[in-house]
Design a binder for these strands. Structure first.
Lengths: 221, 221
DNA sequence: AGTGAAACGGAAGAGACTTTCCACTTACTG
DNA sequence: CAGTAAGTGGAAAGTCTCTTCCGTTTCACT
C-alpha cells in the first residue's frame, strides 16, 4: 500500500473519478464517525458506513494521521474566514476577542473538529499549513490590539495559540457554554493595564507548538 | 480473574507476602514504564521489567484504570503535604500561588504523575479520593486569599482545579519552565482588583470535573 | 510436618485492528 | 474500440494486546 493520498500526489497525477469519489466519501464519513466516536474509531466502521471496502480506506489513508490531516485541511478555510471577519471589526480588541469566541464556538459545536485540530497540531510535520495560513491572521489581529493599547505587549501568537486550543476543552454537556467563563478569565489576563508585571520567560517558538500539543494529549514525542 | 486489587479487598483479607511484594513491584515498575512510555505502555513491558509473569500483572490489576488509580493514590499524600505547607505561609496570596507552583512543578518533573492524574481525574468513580482530600485544602487556601482581598471573589475551587491540570501541559523539553509564563498569566487573571468584571456563568460543580478531564483528553464519555 | 488454598509463570487462545493479496471492475489513452 | 493501468472488495494473514488456563510453587494455618 503505497498510494497515500497527499495533496502533492494529487497535484502530480489526478485520481480517477471513482477513486476521487471514494476519497470524498471517506472524508465525509470519517468526519461523521469521528464526531460520534472520537478519533480512535475503527476504519471498519468508516468503511461499512461509507459502503466501500476496508482495504480501500486503508489504501487511501494508510495512516490515521493522514486521514486526520486531510480533515484538518477542510477546516482551515473556515478558520481563515473567521479571522478575516474579525479583522473587519473596527475595534481591535473586539475583533481579537470575537475571533477567539467564534473559534472556540466552532470547536465546541463540532467535536470532530476539536479533536482533529488537537491531533493535527501535535504532528509536527502537519501543522505547517495551519501555521502559515492562520498564524499571520492571528498575528495581525494581535498587533492591531497591541497598537491600540488594549492587548498587553508581552504576549505573542504562540502564547495565544495554546490557550485557544485549551479553552475548547472547558465545557461539559451540562454546561456547554462553560468555556465562556474561562475565556473571560483569559481576556482579563490579556487586557493591558498600567503597572502590569511582564510575563516571565520568552514565548515559545512556532516549532514548539506540536510539542505542547503532545503534552496536552499526554503522548510521547 | 476476579482478584482485583482494591483497598477494600485488602482491608478484608491481607495479601500473602509474595503477592504483596509483587503488587509493590508492579506499582514501582509501572510508574517507571509509564513515565518513559506513557500510560499506554504494554503490560508485557511492565511484567518483563519487574521480572514477573504477565498473567500476574493482569491478575493483580485487571483493568489499566485500576493500576493508574493505585498509582494516583500513592501521589495524593505528596499533594496533601504541599497543601499543608502552603497553608503555613503567612501571606494568603503567596500561599495559594506557592501551592500552584509546587503542584505544577511536581507534575512537570514527573511525567508519570501528570498522566496518572489526568487519567484518574477523568474516571468519575475514581476521583472521589482526590476530591475529598485535596479539595478542602485548595478551598481553604482560596478562602484565605479571598478574605485578604487578594483573590477575586468570583472564582471557586473547580475553576482552579482545571487550570491546575492544564498548566502542567504547557512546557516542552526545550523550555521546561514555560509553564511558569502561563501560570503568571493566570495569576494576573486571578488577582482581585477594583472594577473587575465578574466572570460569566457559574463555576462547574464538583461532579463536572471528570467530564472536563475527558474533554481535555478528547475522549468519549 | 502436613495440608489446603492462594498465587505463580507463561503458553495457548481470543479479540480486534492493520496489512496483504488477487481476481475482478473501472477509467483513461492512443 | 482495445489495451493497459489504476482502483476495487473483502477474505486471509499478520500483529499486538488481553484473557484463560493448568501444572507448579509458595504461603499460612493447624
Amino acid at each position: 500500500m503505497t498510494t497515500a493520498s497527499t495533496p502533492m500526489q494529487e497535484a502530480e497525477r489526478p485520481l480517477r473519478k471513482d477513486a476521487a469519489r471514494n476519497r470524498e466519501l471517506i472524508l465525509e464519513t470519517a468526519a461523521e464517525v469521528f464526531a460520534e466516536q472520537g478519533l480512535e474509531a475503527g476504519y471498519d466502521e468508516i468503511a461499512r458506513r461509507a459502503g466501500i471496502g476496508v482495504g480501500t480506506v486503508y489504501r487511501r489513508f494508510p495512516e490515521r494521521s493522514e486521514l486526520v490531516q486531510a480533515l484538518f485541511e477542510t477546516r482551515i478555510d473556515e478558520m481563515v474566514a473567521v479571522g478575516e471577519e474579525a479583522a473587519a471589526i473596527p475595534d481591535a480588541w473586539d475583533g481579537l476577542t470575537w475571533f477567539f469566541e467564534k473559534s472556540v464556538e466552532k470547536q465546541v459545536a463540532d467535536r470532530g473538529l476539536k479533536e482533529v485540530m488537537v491531533q493535527t497540531l501535535s504532528e509536527s510535520g502537519h501543522m505547517t499549513v495551519g501555521r502559515e495560513r492562520i498564524g499571520p491572521i492571528v498575528e495581525s489581529l494581535m498587533q492591531r490590539a497591541q497598537a491600540d493599547g488594549a492587548l498587553r505587549k508581552d504576549v505573542e501568537v504562540t502564547d495565544l495559540g495554546m490557550q485557544l486550543m485549551l479553552i475548547g476543552s472547558l465545557s461539559t454537556p451540562e454546561q456547554p457554554d462553560l468555556w465562556r467563563r474561562y475565556l473571560a478569565l483569559l481576556f482579563d489576563a490579556l487586557r493591558a493595564r498600567p503597572g502590569i508585571t511582564p510575563l516571565p520567560l520568552e514565548a515559545p517558538p512556532d516549532e514548539a507548538m506540536h510539542m505542547l500539543m503532545c503534552n496536552l494529549q499526554g503522548r510521547r514525542t
